[in-house]
Write a protein that binds this DNA or RNA. Structure first.
Lengths: 107, 107
DNA sequence: CGGGATCCTTGGAGATACTG
DNA sequence: CAGTATCTCCAAGGATCCCG
């Protein structure tokens, strides 16, 4: 996922941004959190990915300050994920992707 | 790279778009071709990736009609890659990524 | 419910060598 | 130059079990 850059244009802001979100699951997580917070289970079902993989992405997004994790000390436990300010600045990427998807992909 | 969708929101246009370009190298290829065609070797050096990997991405982008491949029968051979109309519709994604990268990433 | 720990499998990517 | 062909390897990801 968060790969390291090696090319001669690794310095480019596009490359640095792509190194963070150039990943299918991460884009889908940001999409899911676009309109409010979601629980771990909701994301799990929406992405159709195992907990292990989802956790890895969420931890990474937390570290990058793109996603915020809030734990509610209830029984059973509840954990809500939401976009930070930085994360919300990724929404134009999602929107551009949506435009493209609507225009060029079918089914 | 071009993963298959399994989640409950796999139908979303964002998901379908992300399935195509939710990959670091693909985003960098589109970025590199944004301002005109480039040769195989130029892309290779820019991305810092092996020929094998680059070829896989280019073939996939060709199949998806995002990139066009033109062979010039010269010696030594020359092959130019460029964005198709569909590929150019990905530029807003790259631009959004650039905005994000400029604002939130450093170095 | 929201994970952590473990085992296991696969294919994606590097390195190298070769060719039209 | 622009690939293809092999081999190898490691790490990402699924499956499973467990726990607070």
């Amino acid at each position: 996922m968060s790969s390291s850059l090696h090319g001669s244009n690794a310095l480019c802001p596009v490359a640095r941004g792509a190194a963070l979100v150039g990943d299918l699951y991460i884009l889908l997580i940001v999409r899911d959190l676009a309109d409010g917070s979601k629980r771990f289970g909701e994301l799990e079902e929406s992405l159709g990915v195992t907990a292990r993989t989802l956790t890895a992405r969420l931890r990474m997004l937390e570290t990058e300050q793109i996603v915020e994790r809030v734990v509610y000390p209830e029984i059973p436990p509840r954990v809500e994920y939401s976009l930070t300010i930085k994360g919300r600045d990724l929404l134009p990427v999602i929107e551009a992707l949506r435009q493209f998807g609507e225009k060029w992909t079918h089914e």
